[in-house]
Design a protein around this nucleic acid. Structure first.
Length: 282
DNA sequence: CTGCAGGCCGGCG
DNA sequence: CGCCGGCCTGCA
């Protein structure tokens, strides 16, 4: 069937972008082809012959939505050239992972998803997000199959900790319940968060139950376009110690090092390092 | 069976 | 304050 949208994009690798661990709602259905949810619609997306092909359950603003989500308006060729000059390890790493884009994911969904991510594994995180969507999100039929959007705050506000436990969120259930309740009572919080500078936004996020420095950085990077943050999980810690410190180091030191060395592109560098250390490339 | 997975909370020194 | 034990749960 003819795609709803066809784009010619340089320096974009769909597979790396969706499989470098920044998102939890995409399912691979073929080599270089995925089905997932972006906000209010189900998307099937395929890359091949230097092009990206998109099918969608909803056609309105499709190009805009897709370009925004996959960050297709940013010149990553130029970006990668810039970061490869920063450091020899980054340059080496880019050989294996050129074309990773940082997604712009919906804020509310990203906050809940990353609270779930704490001390968890990707498989179980994805399952929990899916279960929550199935219970509280809107059903959408796409290509004869059922999918569920991530619920809005309004749709999910009456969720109980027991519901959340049933979705496999474990000890994070009360964090999520607490956060949802807080959003309901402080309706301006999310809007405010988008406007604040990065430092202030991080303070706001870490004031929420279940959000520490690492989860806050992920939200800032994957939903709020703050490309200068450098989320440090166990993998990134390990690879940074191996590449730069040659010994065990604390998070604070790595964070300050990354800020100095990678500056406004720290988040992009982090994604490449994360991808390659997990793939065993570096 | 034990350990662990993209950390965070809470209590203690 | 910084440190560190414990934690839902499913899978190796």
């Amino acid at each position: 069937m003819k795609p709803d949208l066809e784009l010619k994009i340089e320096c974009f690798n769909l597979k790396y972008t969706l499989e470098c661990g920044q998102c939890f709602r995409w399912e691979q259905i073929d080599e270089n082809e995925y089905i997932g949810i972006i906000q209010d619609r189900v998307i099937r997306i395929k890359q091949g012959n230097g092009k990206v092909y998109v099918w969608s359950s909803l056609k309105d603003n499709l190009e805009e939505v897709v370009k925004e989500y996959f960050d297709l308006n940013t010149d990553y060729k130029e970006l990668e050239e810039s970061i490869s000059k920063l450091d020899v390890n980054v340059k080496e790493s880019l050989k294996y992972s050129s074309g990773i884009h940082i997604l712009n994911q919906p804020l509310f969904e990203t906050i809940i998803s990353y609270i779930i991510s704490a001390n968890n594994n990707i498989k179980r995180i994805s399952r929990s997000v899916k279960d929550i969507s199935k219970k509280y999100g809107k059903k959408v039929i796409f290509e004869n199959k059922e999918y569920y959007l991530f619920p809005t705050l309004e749709e999910i506000k009456d969720i109980t900790t027991d519901d959340l436990l049933a979705c496999g969120t474990g000890f994070r259930a009360r964090y999520i319940k607490n956060t949802i309740k807080y959003f309901e009572e402080n309706i301006e919080f999310l809007k405010c968060l988008e406007k604040e500078n990065t430092e202030e936004a991080k303070k706001m996020l870490t004031s929420l139950m279940g959000i520490g420095p690492k989860v806050a950085d992920c939200i800032l990077l994957f939903a709020l376009k703050r490309s200068e943050v450098f989320p440090i999980d166990v993998w990134v810690k390990r690879i940074m110690e191996k590449l730069y410190f040659k010994k065990e180091t604390n998070i604070k030191e790595i964070s300050s090092f990354a800020k100095d060395k990678f500056g406004e592109y720290a988040g992009i560098v982090q994604q490449h390092l994360f991808h390659n250390v997990r793939e065993g490339n570096i």
